[in-house]
Design a protein around this nucleic acid. Structure first.
Length: 433
RNA sequence: GUGGGCGUAGCGUAGUGGUUAACGCGUCAGGUUGUGGCCCUGAAGAUCGAGGGUUCAAAUCCCUCCGUCCACCCCA
């Protein structure tokens, strides 16, 4: 078994038994997006590496140590997409979407790639549903995205989730705040955890949500950013909360909420199961990023968006016992035995399918009994049996697998009509032009 | 990137130094000269994650690697 291939570390196969959940989530995501007026966009699986170095921020962990960056054979510096937002902004710029009605509302469902140590709900290749409203500075846009994110989970039947909301102000005021924060901690530096000593200069916001006992004690008296917002950011934050109340989306303000990406300003949020202590339990998160478009060389353009991980949604659905409907079983199972019967079976199955009846054929060479066992296990409504006798008469036996197993004989060219019985006539799937 | 737990047929498990590694589910076949479900019988399927070491003897003890899970870090 050692020589066998396996999925690369941090990747997974989505097997047929998990597909119904995935399809349900994708459909729910698309439908929720539609209800809010978001249009789908697909961007490539790789982009110029510099897009993320600039956009995501070259001091973030994502860029510093998690990017699948490589040079292609022509020497282009590329990277597999670690997150969707910069890619969608790039598309907005590249296709002149500034001249579309603003804001431009876009969504995408795509694979993302980050080289990190795998854990439950954290893979190296994972799938995100991502929504962005580009070109709107208003608080209503923030609330709209949060509501969209929330309604998706609601639609999927997820319960016991919580919207945690915060604001990290605009760049200028935040700098001033960070200085005040550093001023609080500098005298205590020696007593901080080693991680936090590093964070002090680099990313002081992180000091506040550290889980280390030592850091928690020293947090006493540290200023919280949501309490010291600039006038504009405070008004914006209040307006977001008001709009959420109007929409009926419950939320709690989390003064310690911090997002890791450089480009966020003002509103940030995450949605996670209530009381789940797992580190990577948040299933969706987003924020406003008014400075990103400029960073990427575009005109100043306010924007807000979020991403949610499909793998994490699947985990949460399983945890909560939320199932998805299985795809319907085939309608008919065509069993056959004897010389020439295989040919008739292929033809019969083919005709049934042309009438919209899902038909599966039995394995040639297997006993009728084996084939009927298969038929039963497949969940098919009826078995069509073609043996030497039927073949000679140009007929087939139709056996009811749901009831007591009664059967009737029908001419081969009447099979579809007999089997269709009460079921609705098939819709045409295609049409010649 | 740091620290720790775990890794036995497709899946779930038993076996913790000593004969051909066991059981359940699943798969395949038979019990009906052409008829499913339940039941019965049988078969296939595992170099016990990989490599190395200790030992007369290793699934079992040790080391390395791989994978996975957990806690950090970070994040969807």
């Amino acid at each position: 078994m050692n020589a066998r291939f396996q999925t690369p570390r941090g990747t997974e196969d989505v097997l047929p038994e998990d597909q119904p959940r995935w399809r349900l989530i994708e459909a729910a995501a698309g439908e929720t997006a539609r209800l809010f007026g978001y249009e789908r966009i697909d961007t490539p699986s790789f982009e110029a590496a510099a897009l993320f170095e600039k956009g995501t921020g070259d001091t973030t962990d994502i860029v510093e140590k998690e990017m699948y960056a490589f040079e292609d054979r022509g020497g282009e510096a590329l990277s597999l997409t670690p997150e969707a937002t910069p890619a969608i902004c790039r598309a907005w710029l590249e296709h002149g979407m500034a001249s579309r009605p603003q804001p431009v509302r876009l969504y995408a469902t795509a694979r993302m790639f980050r080289y990190s140590r795998p854990q439950l709900g954290r893979l190296r290749q994972f799938t995100q549903f991502d929504c962005e409203a580009i070109g709107s500075a208003g608080a209503l846009a923030d609330a709209e995205l949060i509501e969209l994110n929330w309604r998706l989970y609601e639609r999927l039947g997820l319960r016991d989730l919580e919207v945690r909301l915060g604001s990290i102000d605009d760049i200028g005021p935040r700098r001033a705040y960070l200085e005040r924060l550093r001023a609080h901690y500098r005298p205590l530096r020696e007593r901080l955890s080693p991680d936090s000593q590093r964070r002090l200069e680099r990313n002081p916001l992180r000091l506040l949500d550290s889980n280390d006992e030592r850091d928690r004690e020293l947090r006493e008296g540290a200023p919280a950013i949501v309490d010291q917002l600039s006038e504009d950011a405070a008004a914006h934050f209040a307006a977001v909360r008001e709009a959420l109340d109007a929409a009926g989306v419950p939320h709690v303000v989390d003064p310690l909420l911090v997002r890791g990406l450089d480009y966020y300003n003002r509103t940030v949020w995450e949605i996670a199961p209530t009381g789940d202590g797992r580190a990577q339990s948040s299933i969706g998160a987003g924020g406003r990023y008014d400075g990103l478009m400029e960073t990427l060389g575009g005109p100043p353009t306010p924007a807000v968006g979020f991403a949610t991980g499909l793998e994490r949604i699947v985990i949460e659905m399983k945890r909560q016992g939320v199932d998805a409907p299985a795809p319907p079983a085939p309608d008919a199972f065509v069993a056959h035995a004897g010389e020439g019967a295989a040919r008739a079976a292929v033809r019969a199955a083919s005709r049934l399918r042309a009438c919209g009846i899902a038909a599966v054929t039995g394995e040639a060479g297997r006993s009728l009994r084996a084939q009927l066992r298969r038929a039963n296990a497949s969940g098919a409504r009826v078995a069509v049996i073609i043996g030497a006798e039927e073949l000679a008469r140009g007929t087939a036996a139709i056996k009811d697998l749901r009831g007591d197993g009664g059967q009737e004989e029908a001419p081969l060219d009447e099979l579809a009509a007999r089997i269709a019985g009460a079921q609705a006539p098939p819709a045409p799937h295609w049409r010649h032009g």
